[in-house]
Simulated assay, not measured.
Amino acid sequence: MWTHGHFYWNELMTRDPDTVRAFYEATVGWRFAEHNLTDGSLYWVAFAGDTPVAGVFAMSGPDFEGVPDNWMPYLAVDDVEARLEAAVAAGATVIRPAFTVPAVGRFAILRQPGGGAIGWMTPA
């Protein structure tokens, strides 16, 4: 079960998923399961034991030009659209409007006042 306002997921965005997966396997013992996303790209879920703990997303294409490797945290929220509207009214800018990942949830990416990027999601 998830709780509104709590951190729910972390995702490493990288241009070199093989190297970062090897790093986390060697240093913290994570194992990875590969998934094909609906757009044809690959995604890896990291596991600590049997518990999924993070994802690895391969950045490619012009949308990520100049973006360094980074961790993207996701907060669980009760209603992505309503919370995104409130965030914009409070000074946030939308990086990626609300979208659905089937069987995972509804997401949006925003830049909070001060510049930090964060994902908000309503888990499925």
Rank of each mutant, 00 (worst) to 15 (best):
M121Q: 00
A89D: 02
V101N: 03
W44T: 05
G66L: 05
V80I: 13
T100D: 15
V28M: 09
F64V: 11
D63L: 03
T51Q: 08
V45M: 11
F64L: 02
T100I: 13
E81H: 09
A86L: 09
G66H: 07
V77R: 00
G114T: 12
R21G: 02
D69N: 14
A124G: 07
G115I: 08
V101I: 14
P102V: 07
A108H: 02
V53Q: 03
A76K: 09
H4Q: 13
H35N: 08
L37G: 00
D69K: 04
E85G: 12
N10H: 12
V77F: 00
R21T: 02
M121A: 01
V56N: 04
A48I: 11
A108C: 04
R111N: 09
G5T: 14
V101M: 13
P17H: 01
T3V: 14
E81A: 10
T38G: 10
F99K: 07
A26P: 08
R106N: 01
G115A: 03
I118V: 12
D39T: 05
D16G: 07
D50N: 13
E25D: 12
A108K: 03
G55A: 03
F64P: 13
V77A: 01
G66W: 05
R31K: 12
M72D: 00
M59Q: 15
P68A: 10
L84K: 10
L42S: 15
E25G: 12
V88S: 10
G66R: 06
E11T: 15
M72F: 05
P73D: 04
P102G: 08
T122R: 04
V28T: 14
A92T: 06
L12K: 01
D18M: 05
Y8A: 13
W9V: 04
A26R: 14
D39Q: 07
R31P: 12
V45N: 02
V94M: 09
Y8W: 10
A82D: 08
M59Y: 11
V88A: 07
G61R: 04
